[in-house]
């Protein structure tokens, strides 16, 4: 037998997702079942759940689900880079060849078809360049495929030679941040973080001079801390 749980006004309010004052009014009007103890009142969880059900109210399932959503905050750029790896001196002299060479080096945890991913990456580039300026590009696949990734990774590739990515500012690209995210929301979160980092001139200079994995991760971690998600 589960122990009977007593709830406070505040707990009932959050359970039903209504303001506390509404719960209080319902108590005074006799709409909602409650128990008295001296001059105060409390609620039995069982009564409230039964009452909510019989009155067609939806309870807190969503609240629980939201807790999982909150963990999207765990999707930091640093984590993505750690998952995906950092690579230097990537060969190639056009969009297709650098992406193709990069894909070969990435270890996908799922058994995904690399040629399929390559096709998707290229077709996304054909719609609009993922070169976001300042010599940075963020190749990623289109939405339907991104839903199939279970893990998220942001492998980083520094190019041996700068490549023209048709970026908006016409600057040739020196670094690729690949983005494989399990959902569109995660993708946008990572994108916002990267965009925030790239706004710093010092960061950009440091990025250009980066020479090993540890240095990059340290750099990202240090600067990412200042990012406030909305």
């Amino acid at each position: 037998m589960k122990k009977e749980l007593n709830l406070s006004v505040k707990e009932v309010a959050s359970l039903l997702q209504i303001p506390v004052v509404k719960v209080q009014r319902w108590v005074y009007q006799g709409q909602i079942p409650c128990k008295f103890k001296g001059n105060t009142y409390y609620f039995k969880e069982k009564d409230i759940l039964k009452w909510a059900k019989s009155h067609g109210m939806i309870i807190s399932k969503r609240v629980k689900a939201e807790k999982n959503v909150v963990s999207e905050d765990g999707y930091t750029l640093k984590k993505g880079i750690e998952n995906g790896g950092v690579f230097f001196d990537l060969k190639g002299d056009d969009i297709y060849s650098v992406i193709k060479n990069a894909i070969e080096k990435i270890n996908f945890p799922e058994k995904l078809d690399k040629s399929l991913i390559l096709n998707e990456l290229i077709s996304r580039e054909e719609i609009a360049s993922t070169g976001i300026g300042k010599g940075v590009a963020i190749p990623h696949t289109r939405r339907e495929l991104s839903l199939k990734y279970k893990h998220f990774m942001a492998p980083v590739f520094f190019l041996k030679n700068r490549v023209d990515f048709n970026s908006i500012d016409n600057q040739p690209v020196f670094v690729l941040f690949f983005m494989f995210s399990p959902s569109a929301k995660v993708h946008l979160k990572l994108l916002s973080r990267l965009s925030y980092l790239l706004r710093g001139k010092v960061f950009l200079d440091n990025l250009k001079n980066c020479s090993n994995k540890e240095e990059l991760i340290f750099l990202i971690e240090k600067n990412e801390k200042g990012f406030k998600s909305d």
């Binding site: 719609i127 609009a128 360049s129 993922t130 070169g131 976001i132 300026g133 300042k134 963020i138 289109r142 939405r143 908006i168 994108l191 916002s192 965009s195 790239l198």
Partner: peptide
């Protein structure tokens, strides 16, 4: 920088 490379979908 982002509005030029994000597509609607």
């Amino acid at each position: 920088d982002l509005i030029n490379s994000i597509i609607v979908e």
